[in-house]
Design a binder for these strands. Structure first.
Lengths: 353, 353
DNA sequence: GTGTGTCATGTAACCGTTTACACATTCGGC
DNA sequence: GCCGAATGTGTAAACGGTTACATGACACAC
């Protein structure tokens, strides 16, 4: 049995299709009597408007696309979560597509979404991806995330990675650390690059020697870096390009018999949920990832509605000091604990130390 | 400037719209000359077919919906990843909607997707959600995940949670542990319930006393449970309802000065990526989450194509023995290491101990 | 009683595809 | 030279909504 269409509803309610449409969209004048008849018919027939037909005549799909380089790990799920929450509030749907590390794949994803979405949220940490996608969006509203493409002055949200790194290094210096190493992210990643350059800048500014180890943004590479450092001539602090690598470093140090923070202080970047749960809890630069997602969606919808956009928006990470850089001083740290977003229900009484 | 439509392309290529359509869909006979002219026009006009119009005339949207209780944490991102990868291979798009813990929200999500998708992947660990959504799918192809709803004999994939729990307990018993506690997941979650009942069954079967502590499936609740246990009369093993709680337990034990596995062995469930990266690496029941996602999508598409479905498919978790239950015996464990799916590029030489 | 304005409703054109069917062309077989 | 068959192409009717415009009913003022 084919699903009911608007004409079936109109026939059953003994009104015209126009009235049905008006009732369903809350637009135009209708008497209460008509409204009631229509609603009954809709209910009886289990009628759901065909979104394709609707988008055909209104040229609006009430759907936005989210294109990400990957879906792996806490960062992306947190981001989608923020976008999804905001989208549901506004009655929008989300088409996601991930694993677009390469320029070509990302461009294909953009193309395949044309005509299917009203706008795009596009994350492209690689420079070429940013350029390749810019060529094919063709007038579609877009909000870009963490995209460092030169000359990109369109709507975007970028994290002040460089500034965050400077804050991290300055914090370590203020604790009296001087032999500070950096575990960098992948070299083709613009965010990793910005964090590295902030580190180099701050070290140079303080007259200290820089020491950089390459990593991949994953925990395993952090662990390798940590083993390297533990084996070497001795550093008294490590600033890692993200939290997962910082955690890897901490585990490696622990394996090597070094104490954190006494022997080596560790700082991460992102403040993923895990960061406040490990011991010692990780000092890091907090980015409210879900909030970035929400903000991206809100700005995208504003753009779709034809409002002028604010252009580039900069998010400044906040230094959250926890056990991995400070001694056990429960009072100051308690104030910095992240409220955990619990899987099912958040009970507030978890004890972080 | 409005985007080009099929008539614009036809005019420019000096052919009819039917020929354009045939070229674009690869259906029906066309000469090479026609194909070439059409392709040139498509290229020149940057033509992209309007998916709404297409879905209107074919009543296919080439889109499937994914409805999840939540998006938080590694489990869900891994699942979506599997679904997304399979969908892209087959040319399908994905509409995701999360945070449907409650029956009503889930039912609303299903309704809002009717007419917009060709089928649904529906995860509903709560019994009422399963029932509420069953009422509104109305003939739409559906694959259900981890849904324990009574009488549900439609297409679904369920994890043998009970069997996994039995294997975990038996493993601990084989190591000589007898005072084995269980940290359970939320009571309204069907998976948590099945894991609990497997534990109880295995303990009873071995003539051992059961000890159950309530948790939430998140790390903070595992930590609380671990503190409780460390403070108490002494257990020699803990089987947690999922990996995140197991990790929380391990951290708490560590804080309390207990050694793992020497004093207390710990077993988790799921094998999230993190499980093999912590120290000691966590013994757990591996579920290939991404593979479940892929399989769900494949079966959904088969169903959409009108093929008969296999009904309920059961996934048996595999016991992966790591450091949290066995002494340092590198050889046997090395074989069980999970290949890490790296954030950006997996380099194989990470050293797990 | 006629003219005018308001308001609810109906009619039909249009949105951009696919595709059944009709048509035109070419070719081979006789 | 005529008759199918085969092949490529075009025409037009769906598909299921939205909405500009027309229509009809009714109230009110003159």
């Amino acid at each position: 049995m084919k699903p009911a269409n608007i004409r079936d509803v109109a026939r059953r309610a003994e009104v015209s299709v126009a009235s049905v449409s008006r009732v369903l969209n809350g637009a135009g004048p209708v008497t209460d009597a008509t409204r009631k008849k229509v609603m009954e018919a809709v209910e009886a027939l289990q009628y759901v408007p065909h979104s394709g037909a609707r988008s055909l005549s209104t040229s609006r799909s009430h759907t936005v696309g989210v294109i990400l380089p990957d879906l792996y790990g806490e960062f992306f799920s947190e981001l989608i979560r923020g976008v999804d929450l905001a989208a549901r509030e506004r009655g929008y749907h989300l088409i996601v597509s991930s694993s677009h590390d390469e320029a070509e794949a990302a461009a294909a994803a953009v193309r395949s979404m044309r005509g299917r979405v009203d706008g795009l949220i596009l994350m492209s940490p690689h420079a070429e991806v940013g350029q390749a996608t810019a060529a094919v969006t063709g007038g579609l509203p877009v909000v870009r995330l963490n995209d460092g493409a030169a000359g990109a002055d369109g709507p975007s949200i970028v994290v002040d990675n460089r500034g965050g790194s400077v804050a991290a290094v300055e914090h370590l210096i203020s604790l009296g650390r001087t032999r500070i190493a950096h575990v960098a992210g992948p070299t083709d990643n613009l965010e990793a690059e910005a964090r590295l350059s902030g580190y180099l800048e701050a070290m140079a500014g303080a007259g200290l020697d820089a020491r950089v180890i390459e990593g991949d943004f994953d925990m395993a590479s952090g662990r390798r870096a940590g083993l390297d450092l533990a084996r070497g001539d001795g550093v008294d602090a490590v600033f890692a390009g993200n939290d997962m690598m910082a955690l890897g470093v901490m585990l490696a140090l622990q394996d090597a018999g070094l104490r954190c923070p006494e022997d080596v202080a560790v700082v991460g970047f992102d403040d993923v949920p895990l960061a406040s749960l490990v011991r010692p809890a990780l000092t890091t630069l907090r980015i409210d990832i879900a909030e970035i997602g929400r903000s991206a969606l809100t700005r995208l919808l504003a753009q779709i509605d034809g409002q002028p956009d604010a252009g580039r928006q900069i998010v400044r990470p906040e230094l959250v000091i926890r056990g991995s850089t400070s001694g056990p001083d429960a009072k100051t740290r308690a104030a910095n604990e992240r409220t955990p977003v619990a899987h099912h229900s958040a009970q507030g009484d978890h004890q972080d130390v």
